[in-house]
Design a binder for these strands. Sequence first.
DNA 1: TATTGTTATACTCTATAACTATA
DNA 2: TATAGTTATAGAGTATAACAATA
Lengths: 145, 145
Amino acid sequence: MPDRDSQACETWRLFIQVLAVERSRLPTIASELGLSEAQCRVLELLDPSTSVSMCNVARALDCDPSNVTGIVDRLEARGLVERSPDRADRRVKKLMLTRVGKELRARLLERLAEPPAQIRSLSLSDQRALCAILQRVSGPARSSG
Amino acid sequence: MPDRDSQACETWRLFIQVLAVERSRLPTIASELGLSEAQCRVLELLDPSTSVSMCNVARALDCDPSNVTGIVDRLEARGLVERSPDRADRRVKKLMLTRVGKELRARLLERLAEPPAQIRSLSLSDQRALCAILQRVSGPARSSG
DNA sequence: TATTGTTATACTCTATAACTATA
DNA sequence: TATAGTTATAGAGTATAACAATA
């Protein structure tokens, strides 16, 4: 059905235009916080209440574990995260946010959550409709609620 | 009036979830074509029918002109683009796609235009509604400068 | 003097391969 | 043998500063 396909293409085209703005937002936010984009991704990933192993970070970032060493080295040098050995498996190192790291992560999430002017410019009813549609998008990590 | 603001935040949150998928799509498409993401951006930027100066590429990429030298060096080494001096201003070098470059650019744009499963999964009426709303999004007044 | 493009330098991210210490 | 993390190495993107050619 070319009808639906062509509609999807046009929708996607418009979607990408909004994406282009976001693409320039992240580097800006990152540099304002003195972070690289990769460091932001690790910070986002780390839950303040739990610890994560280095290899799980690598899996989440979809990169080689050797990269995580360097990224975490720099985060640790800034006092944002801490490595500690896992008692159950001594090969594993667990990563945890420091107090400062938790604070910076909160600021980062706050900035990332700020809707850009493009979204804010929409009328309330458009925003509600957009929201409703996006909730019906079936994504890889869709959760209830 | 947190009503509209909170609606915008929630809408943006959902928007970002779709964007997260795109973030992993671009590197995949790029590597399939044997390109880096920066090289893709330059290729996208170059209109097959006109030429662009190096400094305009730098402006469009929002990066230092010294970076463009390296990126274009590699594109040129692969025979995708050509530098030629501007007759009117001999400081300027104009960039143009080669025949091979035009072909690869077409393939790149084709891949980028493919709507991801998340968009295709929406019903036709949802896609139409989404499209209509996105058309009402006001861009950031093309602030290329 | 200002602009265009380049080079030199340094830092970060990225992948691969080899290594260690555990398991 | 396999896995977790590191190191070594190389390539690419990024920024700054200095430079030559040109305006």
